[in-house]
Nucleic acid binder design. Sequence first.
DNA 1: TCTGGGGTCCTCATCCCG
DNA 2: TCTGCGGGATGAGGACCC
Length: 441
Amino acid sequence: MDAFYASAEQAAKPSLRGKAVVVGGLGPRGVVATASYEARRFGVHSAMPMGQARRLAPHAAYLVPRFRLYREVSEQVMALLRALSPLVEPLSLDEAFVDLEAGEAAWDEVSAEAVGLRLRADIRRVTGLTGSVGLAASKMVAKIASEEAKPDGLVLIRPGTERALLAPKSVRILPGVGPATGDHLRRAGILTVAEIAEAGEDELVRLLGKAHGGHLYAMALAHDERPVVAERDSKSVSVEDTYDVDIHDRVRVRMEVQRLADRCVERLRGAGRSGRTVVLKVRRYDFSTLTRSETLRGPTDDPGVVREAAARLLEAVDTTGGVRLLGVGVSGLADYTQEDLFAQAAAAEEAEDVEDRDAAVAEEEAAEEAAPAEQPAERRWMAGHDVRHAEFGAGWVQGSGVGRVTVRFETPYSTGPGRVRTFAVDDPELEPADPLPLVEL
DNA sequence: TCTGGGGTCCTCATCCCG
DNA sequence: TCTGCGGGATGAGGACCC
């Protein structure tokens, strides 16, 4: 999908069509998740700090991501892909590999191109958004083709032409070559894909190590036999938060770690999994990041067990100077919880856990009350989120501040920009609403 | 107003075991 | 019994991707 989050927002909000739109975290430490093509013209791109984006494109619309909506659209697209082949490998919400031969949807260049064209039309019809298609004989080349196809295009790379096509390009187009590897290669005088191939496998392995070097050399020769793998089980589950202001208070740090552990277990259980290794992540005030992990005797999905492990790990970490991010993760996932000797004891502790949790929630609420500067009312009105007004109907939050919230009343089906009105943040006629489908049913 | 969140994979060091 | 060594498990960190 092309500039997926931003395109979805433009489809949902007619007043933003053709305008610079930036989706990402809006807090003081937010970064850009996706910029619309209009915003990219100002130099805004993903992973850029929001402050920098605002300086480059002060008039762009800045919105918070709405993952619910993106997931729904993603499901529609994935369903179209699965109709082509049982072998669909999603890479993210907006990207996937499809093995067209396995689905007998295509068997040569002509049939593949026909399938690609039809798919793009279907995506547009079903979701209202544009997607790009890259067709090739391997995953790597198909991925590069799809990048070239963006936005709103289709690129087919004929088998046999891959090497010549890749040769003059920067090493950075190869998947797996980021800033660090790019620099490494540049220092060795290797700038293009052709130069990787000329350097030879031994030299690549010497520079980058066995796995990475060998892999990269194969890629440069357009050798990529990796199969399309459907439904891969995830290998870890984690949650993390970056705080608007560094946390110095050790007690508060402990409390945050407990909350993160609970959220992590919630997600773990939601996925019907359990895990054996608990990982604590701490990013300090100076952006240095460290992780500490502990492997348990068996997999668990018990919040008490994960919380205790996370707390133990935290005790081994120096947080003087402050922390900007905390995270808790679980890896070594299994589909079951081991019924070991301690299962009984764990069940007995469950009651205690619930009490602990209540205590933690109470503590947190108390902390919020103690800090009224948080302005909780405006938390409800996040820029870009859907609302409904008893009199004016469906709309979205354009902005909020100093006790007011500004709403634009329009839907994905409005023919032009909607009207704007401002309300008090506690207006009883205004309430949060669910996202509307981008295409009218 | 410098730097998100959720993942994957690889490497290297260390420890333990046979 | 001492020593060498390979290999798995574990833990930490880094690069990369969307």
